[in-house]
Design a protein around this nucleic acid. Sequence first.
DNA 1: ATCCCTGCAAAGAGTTTGCAAGTAA
DNA 2: TTACTTGCAAACTCTTTGCAGGGAT
Lengths: 133, 133
Amino acid sequence: MNNYSKQREVILDVIKNNPIHPTAEEIYQLTVKKEPKISKSTVYRNINILVDMKKINKVKMTVGPDRYDYVYKEHSHMICERCGKIFDFYYNFNKDDISKNLKQQLKENIIIDNITIYGICEDCKSKNEKEEF
Amino acid sequence: MNNYSKQREVILDVIKNNPIHPTAEEIYQLTVKKEPKISKSTVYRNINILVDMKKINKVKMTVGPDRYDYVYKEHSHMICERCGKIFDFYYNFNKDDISKNLKQQLKENIIIDNITIYGICEDCKSKNEKEEF
DNA sequence: ATCCCTGCAAAGAGTTTGCAAGTAA
DNA sequence: TTACTTGCAAACTCTTTGCAGGGAT
């Protein structure tokens, strides 16, 4: 399926060592320091391959480009809808019970991959103290 | 802040009466039937205004354009990562407990807006029976 | 030898913006 | 009459793709 590629190795390494949920652009900027001739399309292509290989996760943002996340341990994300900051956290969702509910309501067996919370972080909340929060 | 606008009313109406989680393009196609001279930029502008007004929700897709959702009752979404289908469902997440955990782990008071599950639906699962699911 | 990978440049999808004219308050 | 809204077209951001050459197996 996939041949070895130095570029892909460096890209994965960059994502692994930068737990900042980098965007494709940030991954490119970090990778190009180690592989000066790499092109942005190679970065995009390999990011997609790594997502398919389940070595990294794509994190959907409410605003701005997608971000990526090295899969080191199962965790959840809380994403601020205002500023886009991503927080990792651990929570023991009752996946069996959620699955049971999904099955009842949707009449489908769903495989739960991950659970994401969209909300407002403290900084953004305090910037909006006048509003209806 | 916002003046009345016929176009915006029609757009909201279209979203309200089409619980199919339409994309901006679909909203435009449905709206243009009632308002033949409306432009796509007006649709985009008003969608953003309606999101700001919290009359509709933006639903982030794993693939393809964003979709929109009339806010009629609090519910959660399960989004298939393979085909992009959105399922509405109701689940009584223990938001107080989740908030408590977020506070402990992130040292921030987070306002939870909505909880989205990303997973694989039954159709997509059976199309991949050979794989490691 | 065959298939996968690369860089480059160009194209693509989806969304936003500047502008001059029109409409609401 | 001031501030918000519109349609149009152009610009913009992010991502994907076609191609010819290079590298892995």
